[in-house]
Design a protein around this nucleic acid. Structure first.
Lengths: 349, 349
DNA sequence: CCCATGAGGGCCGATTCTGTCCCGCCAGAT
DNA sequence: ATCTGGCGGGACAGAATCGGCCCTCATGGG
């Protein structure tokens, strides 16, 4: 057990534990949504408005909250305990333990889990983004090159990066253009992330999928080859993970190929690489983009993917490539653990 | 800080902290007084009866308490968390920290503090006794020789020793007879302790104070010399500590000597040795009894003394002799810390 | 300039909790 | 056998709290 005190509290005072978790959650939520009103917060936390109100008054009396016309905000005093509060609510949800288990089972240095399930509540994606943004910030050093993919999840990360002291990083898209929505393009996100980090960026104005001949032709353009060289020298790669089905639709893969992939047990995709649950590559889309085999060995991979439906996909991709950090949500984490522990036990017997 | 979560709880939920401390205290008290009724417990803890009642019902629902006609008792389940609960309430009272500080400042391996002040509430002495009895049990090994002094505090220790599996120990009084009250005589206590531990004992039927000539004579008696030899081979010594004033009265020291001792700054006494606050010996009563200088180097000293009024006395004796364990109460501990920290700061500047 | 929106705060009946008795009951002393 | 003291539990009035609802006000976009 992580902490004898929490164990005791759980046994001796489960009611108090709940109350305290509630306070910690409220504090944590406010830190993210501030300034925010009671009703919004109550809706977000599935708590009665009055509960929020009582706690708010109490926290105000303790000096952690400031109430004004615009809503509730944290006081300076609250910032000091915020991190502990987050740790606490995580430990209470058993997330700390899940993080450790997943870290071991998936072979990633670090796993971070946001409470909730993205499939059921899309707002959870914002939390995943925020947490991942923090993790990214920790990993990046001045002078680094960062490659990013597109997608909803990475977009959430980009949105959550706090602009602060400029960091000298070069951000490049890890793949060419894909799909229609501009906001989710790797190019767009590379620019936004670079902007928020205070670094520079290069874009790859090419479609994601190209045949070998066209590729050769394009590499003759200095603009393209420069970007490709940067890609190979990436220090950090931030990417999302798609389920095989989802990705096949987006990538406009032909019916035949789709059927074959499904028959082969494809579950996850990342960088145009489709894998089965064991992490075996089933298909690799040719074309412009990062080539995992040619990366620097020191390159650190960061994956962000949330929602129970992505559990198998995440497992497949993390088995395929060693990752430095995985940021996910409770829904995906719990399902992954069920899958992985079942397999582990089956192996053991 | 000992524990991040406790720190957080203190800051974020002082009310819940109190409530939990209350539960832990109640559990702890019941463990000592069981079976016990609401009103008695309430009186002992200075809490409203209703509070006890509510908590009792709650703890019963949690399965830690059993209520019957004879009163409240702990269930088997409660024993599992009792130790954690004790640690918790200690940490909450800041006693854990005080124990560590005192241990460092007094140079004793271990310091244990019972909540409360013996001067204000004589019942605290029982707790000191109980805690010390536990400590003593830990220290003793089969085949050991244990020397004990007399006094109220050691008597409380003797009373609190739980008889269980017999332990092969030899218990001897560390000094001869002293004062009038039979119950507090070293002899009496040696016998009681030996009985409860399941060991053997020898008595010293001599007055505490004798001149050298009489001493020589007495040593010729085999009964006496045997006891004295045992004394020198003691593995563990359990003793109380008296304030200089108190001890001068008990030991019937002459007016002149008393005045000289007071003038020299005598504050503490143990084994007939009077010390000033620095631990310097001011007077050593001749006669039958343990001679600190002739003890085995592996001999471990255990001191038990409680009540704020004994703070200086405890300091003086622990400075004089290295101790393995000191058991005291909050009142004495806090006063000792005030004295010691003042001195330490004065030295530092 | 105004009005819709979302903020905190006030209000009040219903409910829970508190403090205080008292009751019936059992154990141990008489 | 009887008595007595302390036990848990029940009863109950008054206090405090809760919970749902509404109000007023600041604010920012039209």
């Amino acid at each position: 057990m992580e902490n004898g005190f929490i164990a005791l509290m759980r046994k001796l005072a489960p009611d108090l534990t709940d109350e305290m978790t509630r306070r910690a959650m409220i504090l944590e939520r406010i830190s993210v949504m501030q300034p925010v009103g009671r009703r919004q917060l109550a809706a977000r936390l599935n708590l009665p408005e009055r509960e929020i109100r009582n706690t708010a008054v109490l926290l105000k009396e303790l000096g952690y909250l400031e109430l004004d016309a615009s809503g509730m905000s944290l006081s300076a005093k609250a910032e000091e305990i915020l991190e502990s509060a987050r740790d606490f609510s995580k430990a209470m949800n058993g997330l700390t333990e899940s993080e450790r288990k997943l870290s071991r089972l998936l072979g990633a240095e670090r796993v971070l889990i946001a409470p909730g399930d993205c499939d059921a509540d899309p707002q959870v994606l914002n939390d995943v983004g925020r947490i991942c943004a923090g993790g990214l910030r920790n990993v990046l050093a001045s002078g680094n090159t960062l490659a990013v993919t597109g997608g909803r999840t990475v977009a959430a990360v980009a949105r959550s990066i706090q602009s602060s002291a400029p960091l000298n990083v070069m951000v490049v898209p890890a793949r060419g253009g894909l799909g229609r929505n501009v906001e989710l393009q790797a190019n767009t996100l590379a620019e936004e992330i670079a902007g928020r980090l205070g670094g520079h960026y290069r874009l790859i104005h090419l479609p994601d999928h190209m045949d070998a001949a066209a590729m050769q032709e394009m590499l003759k353009m200095p603009e393209v080859s420069e970007a490709m060289e940067l890609l190979e020298r990436a220090d950090v790669i931030l990417h999302g993970i798609g389920t095989a089905q989802e990705s096949m639709r987006n990538r406009q893969i032909g019916r035949n190929a789709q059927n074959r992939l499904m028959a082969d047990g494809a579950v996850g995709e990342s960088f145009g690489v489709f894998c089965d649950i064991q992490g075996n590559v089933l298909m690799e889309s040719t074309g412009v983009g990062v080539d995992l085999a040619r990366l620097k060995p020191t390159c650190r991979m960061i994956a962000a993917a949330a929602g129970a439906s992505k559990a198998e996909a995440i497992i497949s991709i993390l088995r395929h490539t060693h990752h430095h950090l995985l940021v996910t949500d409770q829904g995906a984490a719990e399902r992954m653990l069920r899958i992985l522990e079942r397999t582990e036990h089956a192996d053991g017997e």
